[in-house]
Structure formats: C-alpha cells, structure tokens
C-alpha cells in the first residue's frame, strides 16, 4: 500500500486574476506502514497536497498513484482510492451531523456498502480506538460532547471505513495540551495496527518524536525531506523551522563545549539518558 507522487502541481482558480499555485512540482513516495509528517508554514500548500492523495482535488498536472490506482476523474477508481485513503480534515468536529455518535461514525461504512453487522463491529472498534467509552457515548448526540471528544468521534468516523492509509490535517489544532496528548496516543495506537500515517502538524516536538520521515513544504514546493534528525539538524537552520525544544536544548548544551549530544534525540526519556551518560562520563 504505497503512495507515489510525481511532479504534482495544483493551481487554484486557474485563468482568473486570483490564480494561486498552491502545490508546485512536488514528487515523493510513501511506503507501507510509514509514519510521514508534513510540515510548513500556513499557506505553504500542505492541505492542498494531501487532498490530492485521495482525489478530493484532481491534480492540475502530475500524477498521484495509490497502490497502483492512479487518481483521475474515473468515479470507480476514486471510490476505491477513497476507501484506501482516509482523510481527517482540520476541525473535523464541525462535520458531525447525525443524531447519535454511533450513527455518525457509521456514515462512512454505510456509504461503502458494508453489512449492518460488520458496520456495528467497526463502529464499536473505531470509537474504542479513539479512547472513548462506546457504551457511554454511542447513543449520545454528537453535540453534547466536549470539543476534544467531538473531534475523536469525527476521527472514528474515518477509522470505521478501515482505510490502509490515514491522513490527518492538523488534528490537534485548537486542542488543550491534554487533548493533544490523548490524540497523539490514539494516533500511535492506530499506527501500531500497521496503518500508514500521514500527519500534517505544527507541533514540532510531536512530529520529531513520532515520524519516520518529514516532508517540508514552503510556498508550494517540497524543499526538504528526511528523517527528523536530518530535518532538525543544525545545518538546516536555513529552512527556518521552529526546531523541537529538545533539539534546541541539545544545541545550547553543545555550545557550552561541555557536551556532545548526538543529533536526533527527540523524546524526554532518551534525552535524559544521553545527558546522564555525558555527565557520568565526565565525573
């Protein structure tokens, strides 16, 4: 289940005075089971890029291939691709509309033509996977839930379609720190089930910690791609990214001359061990 993107470009409102080149000649590949993060400033074309991965936007030029299916205007292929690639939009909670949480989550599987039984199983699993208590929320109205819960219900709606690839567009925007943490835990759980994850996020600490690979977008172009260690290495300061806190800490400590912390340590526990080892070695 891989995604192959070649020379992809997307132009909004082509041929009008408002023409915008949102994605400009981008190429990359994403392999089965990979966790890829997409970062870049607002307006750099991240959302436009990922909406082309399941054919919600049809490329202006270039190719997108998902598991051998090429994105084109063919309705049958699009349906197939949308079942394979689940897309969680920014602020997905505003898209809830059914009377009950369970019904809302079942919207996707029903459109796919999944049987009633199978739908119920999937709905229950998806709600549980998102860290919610199925028995408690299933019959509630989505509008009674808190913001963070609503969002997780909306994400469950995408998970219930059982896609192989899940794309999240800034899933933690507007959540409190606790909600953000919970959501990332859920995403990690989903990942452990073997799903490919594509995550658009401004939260550099989490991106560095979670992703296998990072794509950096700027003004529609893919300006860099590599492992978190490569992306946030000191040589890449020119990309003008907000480096994760731990990378900044490592840089500051190394500058004192007393430390030599290697690049690419992005979790607190790991950083603690590295620092202790460095200190131990000196004492």
């Amino acid at each position: 289940m891989s995604i192959k993107v070649e020379n992809l470009s997307y132009v909004y409102m082509q041929g009008t005075p408002f023409e915008t080149v949102a994605v400009d000649n981008v190429s990359f590949e994403i392999n089965q089971g990979e966790f890829v993060a997409v970062i870049g400033h607002t307006g750099s074309g991240k959302s436009t890029l990922i909406q082309q991965l399941n054919g919600l936007l049809i490329p202006t030029s270039g190719r997108v291939e998902v598991d051998g299916y090429e994105i084109s205007t063919s309705k049958k292929d699009l349906k197939e691709i949308r079942s394979k690639v689940g897309l969680v939009f920014q602020y997905p909670e505003y898209q809830l509309f059914e009377e009950t949480v369970a019904k809302d989550v079942a919207f996707g599987p029903k459109n796919q033509g999944v049987s009633e039984e199978e739908t119920n199983i999937r709905v229950k699993e998806a709600i549980t996977d998102m860290g919610l208590d199925y028995d408690e929320v299933a019959e509630m109205s989505p509008f009674e839930l808190s913001g963070g819960q609503k969002r997780r219900v909306a994400i469950a709606g995408v998970l219930a379609m059982n896609p192989d690839i899940i794309v999240f567009d800034e899933p933690t925007a507007g959540l409190d720190p606790r909600g953000r943490e919970l959501l990332f835990e859920c995403i990690e759980e989903v990942r452990k089930k073997g799903k490919t994850i594509i995550l658009v996020s401004h939260s550099m600490d989490d991106v560095a910690r979670l992703a296998d690979r990072i794509l950096v977008m700027s003004e529609g172009k893919l300006i860099f791609q590599g492992t978190p260690a490569e992306v946030f290495s000191e040589q890449n300061v020119k990309l003008e990214l907000n480096a994760p806190q731990l990378a900044l800490l490592a840089r500051k400590l190394n500058k004192t001359g007393k430390f030599n912390i290697p690049n690419g340590v992005f979790d607190v526990e790991g950083m603690k061990n590295v620092i202790l080892k460095e200190l131990g070695g000196k004492n």
Binding site: Q51, N54, L56, K75, K79, R82, S83, G86, L87, F89, P92, Y94, Q95, F107, G108, K110, N111, Q112, G157, V158, M161
Partner: peptide, 15 residues
C-alpha cells in the same frame, strides 16, 4: 465551509 464539508463527506464515501 460548504466546500469543506462536502469534501469531508466525500472522503467518507458520500457522493
């Protein structure tokens, strides 16, 4: 908003 919601529902298999 209409565009966004339609896209989100299309992503969930609505047509």
């Amino acid at each position: 908003e209409t565009d966004k919601i339609m896209k989100a529902q299309m992503a969930r298999g609505a047509s």
